[in-house]
């Protein structure tokens, strides 16, 4: 499993400057990777281009090996409001992933919310519910665009560690503004900076902590510094 980006440049129609310019990097093997960068740097545009696959805009510059299903989830998605969230999850769950759904519901602490409509949930609960329905699908690469926004730090850590443990053979791209979280839990961190800056895209190694980890504050600081220097 590998994907590579060779000279990806993307400009929105009627825009003067490209949002992504000559992006070169590659990510090999499954794992929990991240895309990091300041607001407006093009993280979401990049994620949407990736989700479009080889046939989407900018697809010529993307090379996928062993990745056939790419899913993209983002934090403002909604579930339809005509039924409770439990029914929706059940309806979109492939039969073979039924146990996985039940396990995720427990880990994500949404079991008490399955009888509620989506609009009745808080933003953090909505994001968790939305992420579960992506995780129970068949996918090779899942892009999580701020998918855990508004979730408290402790629960976010539990969720990220559980996802890493439950899906060791899948590739994740986690878009987040939380520097500490990205440095601790992600394997490869693609740091994007504004086009025109000579740095372009840099891939920094994160600490990639797993369940039961012992934190090394100095190593985390080093990773965070590397990321900040790359921005």
């Amino acid at each position: 499993m590998r994907f590579e980006c060779r000279g990806l440049t993307f400009t929105y129609p009627e825009a003067d400057k490209p949002v992504l310019e000559n992006l070169n990097f590659s990510m090999a093997a499954p794992g929990f990777n991240a895309v990091f960068g300041p607001s407006g740097v093009g993280k979401t545009s990049f994620a949407r281009i990736l989700a479009g696959g080889s046939s989407g805009p900018g697809g010529d510059a993307l090379i996928y090996e062993g990745i056939s299903t790419i899913l993209y989830s983002y934090n403002q998605e909604r579930l339809p409001g005509w039924a409770d969230t439990g029914s929706h999850l059940e309806k979109v769950c492939p039969p073979e992933n039924s146990d996985l759904r039940k396990e995720l519901v427990k880990i994500f602490k949404v079991d008490a919310l399955l009888g509620s409509r989506f609009s009745q949930l808080s933003m953090g609960q909505q994001n968790r519910m939305n992420l579960i329905r992506y995780l129970i699908q068949d996918f090779d690469l899942l892009i999580l665009d701020e998918s855990l926004a508004n979730v408290d730090e402790a629960l976010r850590e539990t969720i990220v560690l559980a996802v890493k443990e439950l899906f060791p053979d899948k590739l994740f791209l986690y878009i987040s503004h939380n520097l500490m979280e990205v440095a601790r839990f992600c394997k490869d961190i693609l740091v994007l900076s504004h086009p025109g800056k000579s740095k372009g895209a840099v891939v920094v190694r994160g600490r990639n902590y797993e369940t039961g980890y012992t934190a090394d504050p100095q190593a985390i600081d080093r990773s965070m510094l590397e990321i900040m220097n790359a921005v």
Binding site: L71, E77, R78
Partner: peptide
């Protein structure tokens, strides 16, 4: 924001879209 999931996972049907 609702239709994205169904399109991405290949579940979108015209009946669901209309609903």
């Amino acid at each position: 924001d609702i239709e994205h999931f169904y399109i991405a996972t290949g579940r979108m049907r015209w009946q669901l879209e209309v609903k």
